[in-house]
Amino acid sequence: MLDTLLEPFAFEFFRNGLWAALMVGALCGMIGVFIVLRGMSYIGHGLSHAAFGGAVLGYTLNVNFYLGAVIVAFVAALLIHQLSKDGKIKSDAAIGIVTTAIFALGVALISRVRQFTQSFEAALFGNILGVTTTDLWVIAAVLTVAAVGLLLFYRPLLFSTFDRDAAAVFGIPTERLQMGFSLVLALAIIASMNIVGVTMIAAALIIPASTARLLSDSFSAMLIISTLLGALLGVSGLYASYHFDAASGATIVLFGAAAFLVALIYTRIRERLTMHEHLHYHGDVAHAHPHTHDGEHAHTHDGPLTPAKGRTGGTTALADAKYEKLP
């Protein structure tokens, strides 16, 4: 029994894959927080496809695979930002146009020169079992850059993610920050491409952050949970994929979806159990709505509980009750 469980660790390709999944999971989990909170979830999907197009282009032009992918993904991110800036073209449309066009270019190039179709299949669907030591170093370098960048620019990043316009007024260089973030995102996507696959990167970016958002109402906690969860999902997904003999990227994403579902059910049940509805007070504000009593909605139950204007508690009483001054 134990032998079966430990069996994969005997293989170097598996150990390499595990390290890669751990680092890529953490990296995507960390960066995903900013993407999810900005409402740009589609960007990971788009940029990974652009990066694929860039990789093919690079290969065709005899440039380094990584280099072509990074440059093209970064340029795509800047293009999307410029296109969607004045609001006429929404960012989801901009992502769709720019990245699909570049992806299409890659596909067109592949179909012309058929002999390297095989090697790009790994990039599309992820082939964690082919991870080389060079890949590991690249991933570790990107993870380090992202983590150090996050630590150094935590404050301006938080502010400009929350409210970009106000951040600019408070002297935060939002444009430069956006460029820096796009570059790190492009790097992260390239680092993840061979592990989870172009088609799965979007989920690797979004699932841990969304799950963390369900579990926490604090930005810093969300960052920590998302990073750890990403790493955990990467490792466990990869390990399971060995035993199920399934594609590693897909297994990691399925594990993520399951984790999200569990978190969703957990939060719903917790709300059901602790939620109740009655008129209550915060300082001089009185109102009624379904709420829980943990942390931020704490209030005492002593004091007058007579609803304003003779209504019983309930959300309908909200409008009348909210600004009644209490004796």
Binding site: L37, T161, D163, D165, R213, S216, S218, F219
Partner: peptide, 10 residues
């Protein structure tokens, strides 16, 4: 009205 009220900050 322009504030993202669901953003996780206190």
């Amino acid at each position: 009205e322009t504030v993202d009220w669901s953003f996780p900050v206190t």
